[in-house]
Simulated scan of single mutants.
Amino acid sequence: MMTELDLSARPAKAGLQNLAGMTRDEIAGQLRDAFGLDEKKARMRGAQLWRWIYVAGATDFAAMTNISKDMRADLTERFVVARPEVTERLVSVDGTRKYLIRLSPGVEVECVYIPDVGRAGALCVSSQVGCTLACTFCHTGTQKLVRNLTSAEIVNQVMAVKDDLEEWPSGGDDRRLSNIVFMGMGEPLYNLDNVERAIDVISADDGISISRRRITVSTSGVVPEMHRLGAETSAMLAISLHATNDALRDELVPINRKYPIKELMDACRAYPGLSNARRITFEYVMLKGVNDSDAEARALVRLLKGIPAKINLIPFNPWPGAPYECSSWERIEGFADIISRAGYASPIRTPRGRDIFAACGQLKSESVKKRASDARKERMAL
């Protein structure tokens, strides 16, 4: 049974700068500008705040007991350590949690916590409000791009979920959040500056401390930014592939018209750090009668030859008006068997959170539907 809970959080006070989500340098810079501190003192004070924010999870300066009372009072006058407003929290029958986070009036994103994935549990974060890619099997792609998220807005998705999981202080052996996947709303490589800064904060050893090897960034194939992603973040790479030839991929993933499969595969082979220990994950959604034949499976094996890879087979998650159906389980298993016999790991991703529209390709669809319904009721009441 699905449960629906209200988890409204205190947003940042108007006019006060929110330090939560900032990088180490940004915090030091805020202190230097606000209080006229020299660089050394700004960095020292910044390091204290960093540990309270990202290790202890503190949201109140009064709790920061190794900072003088006068400084705490000054900080309270100028800054806050606030979480974004979580306007809705849905819990699936399988334990998946979906959060609707309001960034500003009318601007919202969703993120999803999936238990028992990776070492302990994975959080699927968003990098944009909406999306420009219009992949035809993805409901998120039907929503227009509003804007990129800032690095702080990305980090604060993690912070809000850590609050809900009661996972402070950071870094414990019993953590429930061990992996971050940039597979939510938006194309991360179209917002790489902010994604990179967010990864720096999330992965810092003296903070939230999620290893870069447990952070995966998924792209639909923004080829020019792939090398930079690997060189500057050391994040694991996932490719939203879904087809083995340009004609079909042009239809399913329209960015392929700009960066066709050969260019994409060349960029994969050149990805920094690629090895058997750092394989690329290729995501392949299973669409009945479209891309699920034995011939397509064999073509996929040929396409990935020489690339250390894992293939995630994703049963299509339906949404209202979707033009596709999910392949049968028997067909998916047959497809996986061909890939497995060729020597590739080919796990079939168990759909999670379907009952709350939290599965792959479904993010924000339910919240949009609800807002549209509310708007109709308001018009009828006039």
Results as ranks from 00 to 15, higher is better:
256 N>M: 02
230 G>P: 14
243 A>P: 02
238 A>C: 09
249 R>N: 07
241 L>C: 07
233 T>F: 09
258 K>Q: 10
234 S>Y: 08
248 L>H: 07
232 E>N: 13
246 D>L: 03
252 L>M: 12
237 L>F: 06
240 S>M: 03
257 R>G: 13
229 L>I: 12
238 A>T: 06
230 G>Y: 06
240 S>K: 03
238 A>Q: 05
244 T>P: 05
233 T>C: 09
242 H>P: 11
242 H>M: 11
257 R>S: 15
245 N>I: 02
232 E>G: 10
247 A>Q: 12
250 D>H: 00
230 G>M: 14
235 A>M: 10
258 K>M: 08
234 S>V: 07
234 S>A: 12
230 G>N: 13
246 D>Y: 03
234 S>L: 10
231 A>N: 14
256 N>R: 03
238 A>P: 06
254 P>Y: 02
239 I>F: 05
252 L>P: 01
254 P>A: 07
256 N>Y: 00
257 R>T: 15
233 T>D: 06
248 L>S: 12
242 H>D: 08
244 T>R: 09
252 L>G: 04
249 R>A: 00
254 P>V: 01
247 A>P: 07
256 N>F: 02
231 A>C: 07
245 N>H: 14
236 M>V: 14
236 M>Q: 14
240 S>Q: 02
241 L>D: 01
253 V>P: 07
238 A>H: 04
244 T>N: 10
237 L>R: 02
249 R>Y: 03
232 E>L: 12
238 A>K: 00
242 H>T: 13
254 P>T: 04
235 A>H: 11
247 A>I: 05
231 A>R: 15
238 A>D: 08
229 L>H: 06
241 L>R: 01
256 N>C: 01
255 I>S: 05
255 I>A: 05
249 R>S: 04
231 A>P: 08
240 S>Y: 01
232 E>M: 13
247 A>F: 06
239 I>V: 13
248 L>V: 15
257 R>P: 12
244 T>G: 10
243 A>S: 08
248 L>Y: 09
238 A>N: 06
252 L>K: 03
253 V>R: 05
256 N>V: 00
234 S>R: 14
249 R>G: 01
245 N>P: 12
229 L>V: 10
235 A>N: 11
243 A>M: 09
240 S>A: 05
234 S>F: 10
234 S>I: 00
245 N>A: 10
252 L>I: 10
244 T>I: 11
241 L>I: 09
251 E>A: 11
229 L>D: 03
237 L>E: 04
231 A>M: 14
244 T>A: 12
232 E>H: 13
257 R>I: 13
229 L>P: 02
229 L>W: 07
241 L>P: 06
252 L>F: 11
244 T>D: 06
240 S>H: 00
242 H>G: 08
251 E>L: 12
244 T>C: 12
240 S>F: 01
246 D>S: 07
252 L>A: 08
242 H>I: 11
231 A>I: 08
255 I>N: 04
246 D>F: 04
241 L>W: 00
252 L>R: 04
258 K>R: 14
247 A>S: 14
234 S>M: 09
236 M>P: 07
255 I>L: 14
258 K>L: 13
235 A>S: 15
258 K>S: 11
233 T>L: 09
255 I>T: 12
239 I>Y: 01
256 N>T: 01
254 P>G: 04
248 L>G: 10
257 R>N: 13
237 L>C: 04
239 I>C: 03
231 A>V: 08
235 A>G: 10
256 N>K: 01
248 L>C: 14
247 A>G: 09
243 A>C: 12
240 S>D: 02
231 A>G: 11
243 A>I: 06
